[in-house]
Design a protein around this nucleic acid. Structure first.
Length: 603
RNA sequence: GGGGCUGUAGCUCAGUUGGAUAGAGCGACGGUUUCCUAAACCGUAGGUCGUGGGUUCGAGUCCCGCCAGCCCCGCCA
């Protein structure tokens, strides 16, 4: 009810302005008094909206809050435009003004949404001030080349995709960037090690498989940490690579190609689209980052390393903490790359991405890093005045023991294994149900439902939690058929599909819409909240708000379904209820699509 | 030592610029099916919102102290 609430807000504000100007002369300070504080009602019995300003105004106006509320209501109840939309407001408690939207307004909203593919969510183009924000970079997933994707990439991938979908739906041009780790010290290590133990892997595509590569990586890392000679060789190798040595580059590109195919496999299963643009992309821009910082006078050479000292962050010794942009050995590091990336992304097309909002979806452990890098970028003047740079952090994935999720043998969990297990468990559940209910389904049905339910459960479990807190991973909970889970939501949709299969009309004679049951009104009001929720998610970048809404909606629908017959109802109730069913289905489907979750007709 | 995040029911978690009696789900206990998929619905029990102060008409929410857990802290990303 975005539009309705905006209109109500305007009318209330008008009444408020009139009232305040009668009490006092409008000064600078009293402008601040003019916010009606219109918010959705906290409880259904309070109506649709509530106005809280009477309580805040009591002190500055030196009047009791109820008196203020009464005066506002007196004015608003003669406002014809307001009365078109709402009943005469009621005053409750210490001075709340409760507002109820008229039934005919709600019904006309319903009719409008049934014809509107966007279900009432405005595209940004309709609001000119948003236009400049239309290019958005979402940096997410970002696995490392020569490693397999593991559970650590799960949240970034799923949350990032969801945020990108919401932003795209709102009409932004979104660049979904996969900032893969395809550069830096780790390649020096790996290539040096491979040269010694498996030189073929660097010359011939797929000479070793990715699993072996991961083992080699682990070995290389261990040698790097313990063997000084190896460390030196690795550093040399990085320098060779960064200076464009042909043999090193060839080896590097073979490794990248091999990992890339593996990543793509996972992204396809999850239905996630990403543009790969690894760290190496910014290689040509690294030197100019250092030069730029030098010119702006921010650069300090400390112990041989070129760095920028941060404001507001102090280390152990009481000295400011540095961001190192060029190491003692002349090499660049991740801070340099991130700075180059920020600069490139904000630079106008065609020299850069022309973005106005850049979003990083990474774990909360990188907060310090981004704090530093963002500050340096700001002080260097690389962020346009209307540009927004946001770190969207998320917590750790933990096992049910509350510790970082590991396999039984203590290894990190591979993403493909995790997805396979979710699907496997979903299939077991489904087969048990089919047996218990004596249903017969072919193998295509079983495999489609299992894989949809399994993947949906993994995604939904992650998205439905406030991303900032650590997330306790549990197959049992996410696949559970009850509660705030993907199967529960999918089931609500399946019930609606059932109604249509059993003879629900799809072309609705909307002129006859009429409601008689409280459950119908509750459902309609819930449906009309959708546009608010999407706009909120876009602003706050919290997908769990959308999940909570879809869960609420499913609960409300299930109550309705349970207590109110649809197909057997007399007209005009039948067509009215079918209209509610269709809008519920449309809303759930669109909501799930924005979460990156496909839906089912039957399950 | 410094910084970040977290602390809400037995468990997992919600809680929109501070608003009315703090909410779900799971688990527990009890009930509902000649009817559109019961993978559902209804009910009961369960709370000093870590803790102590402060701000104010009003604090789970804002400020300060303390306690506990996790993470980060110069050349890895």
């Amino acid at each position: 009810m975005l539009i309705i609430s905006q209109l109500i807000g305007i009318r209330i504000r008008r009444a408020l302005e009139e009232f305040v100007s009668e009490c006092t002369t409008l000064s600078e300070s009293s402008i601040a008094l003019l916010d009606p504080q219109l918010v959705p009602a906290t409880k259904p019995e309070f109506g649709d909206f509530q106005v809280n300003c009477a309580l805040t105004l009591a002190k500055p106006l030196r009047k009791p809050p109820r008196e203020i509320a009464l005066a506002i209501v007196e004015k608003i109840k003669h406002d014809e435009q307001f009365l078109e939309l709402c009943e005469v407001p009621l005053i409750a408690g210490p001075g709340f003004i409760n507002i109820t939207v008229k039934p005919k307004c709600l019904i006309s909203e319903l009719e409008h949404r049934l014809r509107d593919k966007r279900l009432g969510v405005p595209p940004i183009d309709s609001d000119r001030s948003d236009k400049q924000l239309s290019r958005v970079v979402v940096d997410f997933s970002s696995p490392n080349i020569a490693k397999e994707m593991h559970v650590g990439h799960l949240r970034s991938t799923i949350i990032g995709d969801c945020l990108a979908r919401v932003l795209e739906f709102r009409g932004h041009t979104v660049l979904r960037l996969n900032h893969v780790g395809d550069w830096g010290t780790q390649f020096g290590m790996l290539i040096t090690h491979l040269k010694q133990v498996a030189p073929l892997a660097l010359k011939k595509p797929d000479a070793v498989d990715l699993g072996d590569l991961v083992d080699f990586y682990r070995e290389a890392k261990q040698r790097f940490d313990t063997d000084i000679t190896f460390q030196a060789l690795s550093r040399e190798e990085v320098v060779k690579l960064q200076s464009g040595d042909e043999i090193s580059l060839k080896a590097w590109s073979l490794l990248c190609e091999q990992s890339r195919r593996e990543f793509q496999n996972i992204y396809q299963r999850l239905d996630i689209r990403l543009t790969e643009r690894g760290e190496s992309f910014y290689n040509p821009y690294l030197q100019s980052v250092v030069d730029g910082l030098e010119r702006s006078g921010l650069l300090v050479v400390d112990d041989g390393a070129k760095c920028v000292f941060l404001e507001g962050l102090v280390g152990k010794d009481g000295k400011a903490l540095p961001v190192i942009v060029q190491k003692r050995d002349g090499g660049f590091n991740y801070a340099t790359t991130d700075l180059a990336a920020i600069r490139y992304r904000f630079t106008a097309i065609p020299q850069g991405d022309g973005a106005c909002r850049v979003i990083y979806v990474t774990d909360v452990g990188q907060s310090n890093h981004f704090f530093g890098v963002f500050q340096v970028a700001k002080r260097a003047g690389w962020i346009p005045s209307d540009g927004s740079l946001e770190h969207v952090p998320f917590g750790l994935v933990q096992g049910e023991d509350g510790k970082k999720l590991k396999t039984r043998s203590g290894d990190t969990v591979r993403l493909r294994d995790l997805l396979d297990e979710a699907i496997g468990r979903a299939e077991k559940d489904l087969r048990r149900r089919l047996r218990e209910e004596g249903r017969q389904e072919d193998s295509a049905f079983i495999s489609n439902v299992s894989s949809t339910v399994g993947l949906a459960s993994v995604k939904y479990a992650d998205l439905s939690q406030n991303r900032i807190t650590n997330y306790q991973f549990s197959f049992d909970r996410m696949l559970s058929l009850q509660g705030n889970t993907a199967p529960y939501l999918l089931y609500a949709l399946v019930r609606i599909s059932g109604i249509y299969r059993k003879g629900g009309d799809t072309d609705l004679a909307l002129s006859k819409v009429e409601f008689s049951e409280p459950q119908e009104w509750v459902l309609l009001r819930e449906l009309l909240k959708f546009d608010d929720v999407i706009v909120l998610v876009e602003k706050e970048l919290l997908p769990n708000r959308l999940c909570n809404y879809l869960f609420e909606l499913s609960q409300v629908f299930n109550r309705f379904y349970d207590q109110v017959p649809v197909l057997k109802a007399e007209e005009p109730h039948r067509v009215s209820r079918l209209a509610l069913c269709r809008l519920t289905a449309d809303t759930l489907k669109l909501g799930m699509t924005l979460l990156g979750i496909p839906t089912l007709e039957r399950m």
